[in-house]
């Protein structure tokens, strides 16, 4: 098989996915934190703050979609660290000196991120059931919610991969997870934007996380979705296209000879 055929490129990508998934699986700390953190946040909001927040429904039913976004956002952001580790160790030189398309290393990390997030999201959903989450979604609704979350994870993972490429250290790449933990607070994830100061309302009402949260909430708990789903889809697709383009452009720049 030539090193430059499509089959070779697919085979190399499969090899790198296999590698990243194995590395992610063995990085027990990261997997553990990416599950424990959202579950603790959920407990905090449901049992401590929830009683003081009036959303017109059982608070857990309001907050779970936001917690799911926080889970996936945080999980996707850790992709930046894995990529930064490869870019700043000898690994990228090794891969670039082989007759392969070394960009496959990023695809590997993104695929591992999706796998990791599928696991953590499933576990967080199970935990939410234990805390009293009672969705009234049909199978179709579940599929729509999962599909949207998946698209969101893939897009964010590519964004994280792109930032990992330019990060000068694993530590600086880790700041992305901080932003991903923080951004949902400025959305409708935890409180209704109407309760926020007037200058903040337009921001929180129109930022992408709000649309995705509203859409997932609509699918799972039956509140009217309105045009949130369309906006959410548009945001995610746009973010995905932008992120893949950004990641490949940054990768080309960083490895320009």
């Amino acid at each position: 098989m030539s090193h430059h055929s499509v089959a070779a490129a697919l085979s190399d990508t499969a090899t790198m996915i296999d590698r990243s998934v194995r590395l992610a699986r063995r990085n027990v700390d990261t997997v553990f934190v990416s599950i424990l953190l959202p579950v603790l946040m959920m407990a905090l909001f449901v049992y401590v703050f929830g009683g003081a927040i009036n959303t017109g429904t059982a608070y857990i039913n309001y907050v779970v979609p936001g917690i799911l976004l926080l889970t996936t956002g945080y999980g996707a952001a850790t992709t930046a660290m894995a990529v930064a580790d490869d870019m700043n160790s000898g690994m990228i030189d090794r891969l670039r000196s082989l007759p392969i398309r070394s960009f496959a290393v990023l695809t590997g990390h993104v695929a591992a991120s999706v796998a990791r997030n599928a696991l953590s999201t499933t576990l967080v959903i199970l935990a939410s059931f234990a805390m009293g989450f009672r969705p009234n979604a049909t199978a179709g609704d579940w599929l729509a919610a999962i599909g949207l979350l998946l698209l969101y994870v893939v897009a964010l993972s590519w964004l994280a991969a792109g930032l990992g490429v330019v990060a000068r250290s694993v530590e600086s790449a880790s700041t992305l997870s901080f932003f991903m933990l923080f951004l949902p607070y400025l959305s409708s994830a935890f409180v209704q934007p109407g309760t926020m100061p007037s200058w903040l309302q337009p921001i929180s009402a129109h930022q992408p996380i709000t649309y995705v949260v509203e859409a997932v909430r609509g699918f799972l708990t039956g509140v009217p979705v309105g045009n949130s789903a369309t906006f959410a889809l548009a945001w995610c697709v746009g973010l995905l296209v932008f992120s893949v383009a950004l990641a490949s452009s940054l990768y080309r720049q960083r490895t320009r000879r």
Binding site: S11, R26, G90, L98
Partner: peptide, 30 residues
């Protein structure tokens, strides 16, 4: 296709076994 590079810093995956590291390169080299 005809060279190999062993850089100044060992380019090995800490969380893979020695065998898995070698097999990975073997697969990349088809």
């Amino acid at each position: 296709g005809v060279i190999s590079l062993t850089g100044q810093y060992a380019a090995v995956d800490e969380n893979q076994t020695g065998r898995e590291n070698l097999a990975m390169v073997g697969r990349l080299m088809h």
